[in-house]
Structures are given as structure tokens and as C-alpha cells.
Amino acid sequence: MKPPPFGYRAPATVTEALDALAAEPSGKVLAGGQSLIPLLNMRLAAPAELVDINRVAELDTLHVRDEGVRAGALARLARVERSAEAAAVQPLLGQALRHVAHPVIRNRGTVVGSLAHADPAAELPAVLAVLGGTVEAASARGRRTIRAAEFFRGPMEPALEPGELAVSAFFPASPPRTGTAFTETARRHGDYALAGVAAVVTLDEDLRVSAARAGYLGIAATPLVLDLTGAAGPHGDWRAAAAHVRERIDPETDIHAGAGYRRHLTGVLTERAFKSAAAEALRRAGE
């Protein structure tokens, strides 16, 4: 479990990083290294070059605005998890981050790195997807903004072109009278979830459900977003919403759980998450 030979560059600016990626398009970006380093050590990845962005200070940012939270490519998971400002604007971030692996991994791993890894079993892709967030990508050719719905193309397959660097991710703020919840079931604390759901509920002024959206991890090749507004109805029949979800999804069997259990579990977690999110929406509506 030693990596094969690779070139190594440690740029100090985004421009230098983009130049490095342009010069070696098959290069891989090293940020927190919590996924890439194991892949290298197991020789499942053999990039010609690593472009280590850890010295690029301009990427070590976390901007919290009224409209949302923008995490730079070096914003560590732990920093976002502990940010009270970020939680105030978009509570789902912190709710989900607590489930990401273990504290030592969150100290190193980055928000953008987790998104760019595009593991469908990971928490943050589901969060970005359900919130309708975006990823900002830069290359020597210029910058572009990629919507979550387009960003996750397949398992471990982000919509980043060779030479492109994901420089930040944007998570829109929670609207008024909106509650969120994140629930997952993992075999051990910190494991990838057998199934998980990020729930977002918005109430209208009469406290009826006006929007109910769920982001799922671990049950499809990419984060799955379902609009459950109709299935739940204005009074929030979350059991009916869960039944609807069970019919809509088509999870796979793997070594940790069968498809039948995953389907069942996803329904249970849907109901639990939405009950919690709806209660939170109600509380916030009363503030």
C-alpha cells in the first residue's frame, strides 16, 4: 500500500494552480487528501502529478452572507461544521457534517474536496443537491458556475473538465419558515451511511407545507433529490411521503445491506427526517 510514482507541485496562488493543471491535465488536485491518499496507496489511482493546493491561501475561505454560505476549496469540514454563522444561514450544513466520517478526518478533509470526489454515499453531495447549490470551477480558460443537478454525473464522476479546479461551493440560505434535518443510518459511527436523507420543509404563512424536498445518499449513483410536496400534502403526511419514496427509489444490494432493507430504511429515515424538519420549520415560523 505505497503509491506509484507521481509528480508533485505545490502552487501558492490559484493562477499557479491552474497553470499546473493546464500543463498536466491528468493531474489530480490534493486538498485534504482524505479520499485521494487512500486511493493512491491502494494503487487505485495513478495520476501523473499531484497539484497540492494547501498553500493557496486565497482558497482558505468561508464566506457567510444573507444569501448563503460559500466555502473555498480549502475550507475544512470541521471549520464549516463549527461555524455558528454558517449554521444560522444554512443549518443543514452543520446537521450533515456531524455525520461525515470522524473528527480527525473532518479536521483535514474539505467541503469542496468531498463534492469533487462525488461519492454518492457521501453526505455533502446530497446536501448541495437538495439545496440547489452550485460549484464554482476555474481553469486557465476561465471560470464557470455548475449547478448541483449537473455537477454529479455519476459515481466519483464530477462535471469537472481536465485542467479545471473547483474553487468554491455555494450553499443557498434557508428561506423563512423553513426547517431542515439530516438523518442517516450507518453500521458504525462515522461509516458511510446505509441510507441517509437531507430533508427541507418550507411552510406557507398559514403553516401549511408549501415545499418538501429530500436529498438522498447511498441509494443511487448520484445524489437523488425528490420533491415530496405533493406526496406529503399541505398537512405534512410524512408517512405517505415515505411510502411514496419507497416506491420511487431503486437501491442496490451491497455487502453491507440488501436492496429491500435499504428501501425500507430510506422510508423510515424519510419520515423521521421530515418530522424533525417540519417541527423546526414550525419553530422558525413562530420566531
Binding site: 429491500g260 432493507y261 430504511l265
Partner: peptide, 11 residues
């Protein structure tokens, strides 16, 4: 016995 296994047993 995993949660998945117990679920199967229940079924």
C-alpha cells in the same frame, strides 16, 4: 447479525 440481517429475519 446486522440490521439488514435482522430486517430479513423479521420479514
Amino acid at each position: 447479525l446486522s440490521p439488514d440481517g435482522l430486517y430479513e429475519l423479521r420479514e
